[in-house]
């Protein structure tokens, strides 16, 4: 177990639902904020932790003992500890105040994986911010430090059970540093989103038969030999296929297209080809699997969904477009 998960510990505690409710009351869920979010002093909230309450109770006992036994040093110690507690509240608060948070890049994931959101934490001040933690309601807290005048990229993993656009919504950035008696937090709603592709179906689901619609069919073979022309470069095209000669002439990036790859296999992945009995999600899963396999196999494939279709294509960018389409498919589209 992580010995230092102060924030983690407390946000899991009893206080959590209370804090959530208070947080909701003070900060009703609002639209995400664009641009960097600065945790101004007014946004930072603070409450004692369970350990803080225990500490306070102990101080009361020590005070009573000091009165009863007339212990002057007992008063001194009790008051010193009380002062430490109060000052630690300021330290906890300033550990969070004026940190800037910005949404970072996000990579799509498949349903069932965990989405990884990146948040850039910037510390503009002269003091180090230690043991901060970012946590979505459904994620584990992610601990990080930000040195003085520097920034840290925090990676937060959130379960992505369903396909679609995953918007984790509001997260809480909190800290219990330095001595864990107080928990300071702020609710931040950055414009974070992660595309979740359907989970590829597992098991034995062979690709549908290759169609010989164009007439050239399988006879042409799979070779990359027959140069068919040039097209604009798309992200994801293999570097081997970039027309480097034209690049050298100072022209824009173009990708060479070969007849062989065009003719090798012309595959339509059609929603209608999947058994309706599976249900929509399962069918999308199967299509996802097929897209991945077709891409793997270097096939030229297209995607047909009710109300949408993607023309035949190859390459990384094409695959991404297909997966995006599957992820965002709305059954009502048909």
């Amino acid at each position: 177990m992580n010995p230092d998960s102060g924030a983690a510990r407390d946000s899991r505690g009893l206080n959590r639902s209370l804090r959530d409710r208070i947080g909701e009351w003070i900060f009703p869920t609002k639209a995400p904020e664009r641009g960097p979010v600065i945790l101004s002093q007014r946004r930072v909230y603070i409450l004692p932790t369970r350990a803080g309450l225990l500490y306070a109770l102990t101080l009361v006992l020590m005070l009573i003992g000091s009165i009863n036994y007339n212990l002057s040093l007992g008063f001194g110690l009790t008051f010193l500890l009380a002062g430490t507690g109060i000052v630690s509240m300021l330290h906890t608060w300033r550990n969070l105040a004026h940190v800037e948070l910005r949404a970072g890049r996000t990579e799509p994931v498949f349903a069932g994986d965990r989405a990884r959101f990146h948040v850039l934490a910037v510390n503009p001040g002269r003091i180090a911010r230690l043991s901060l933690a970012i946590q979505f309601t459904e994620s584990d807290p992610e601990q990080f430090d930000v040195g003085p005048r520097s920034e840290t990229e925090v990676r937060i993993r959130v379960p992505a059970p369903r396909r679609g656009m995953l918007r984790p919504g509001r997260f809480r950035v909190g800290t219990t540093f330095p001595i864990g008696l107080f928990y300071a937090w702020a609710n931040v709603h950055l414009d974070l989103a992660c595309l979740v592709y359907p989970a590829p179906e597992s098991g034995n689901v062979p690709l549908p038969d290759v169609q010989a619609a164009s007439g050239r069919g399988a006879a042409t073979g799979r070779g990359d030999e027959d140069f068919a022309g040039l097209r604009d470069y798309h992200a994801g095209d293999s570097p081997r296929r970039i027309a480097w000669k034209s690049v050298a002439r100072g022209e824009a990036l173009v990708t060479k297209v070969f007849a062989g790859s065009v003719a090798a296999a012309e595959l339509w992945l059609d929603f209608a080809d999947t058994p309706p009995a599976l249900g929509i999600e399962q069918r999308l899963s199967r299509l996802t699997r097929w897209v991945l396999e077709a891409h793997q196999g270097g096939l030229r494939y297209g995607l047909r969904l009710p109300g949408r279709h993607i023309e035949l294509g190859v390459g990384e960018a094409h695959k991404t477009r297909c997966l995006e389409c599957l992820a965002l498919f709305q059954p009502g589209d048909s």
């Binding site: 009165i67 009863n68 008051f79 010193l80 002062g83 630690s88």
Partner: peptide, 24 residues
Amino acid sequence: LLLQAIPVMLLLFLLFPRVQGPLW
């Protein structure tokens, strides 16, 4: 933390209303 607690401690020590013990 302890150094910054000292002013608070001094204030409490001087101004916290003292009660003559013992309580029991």
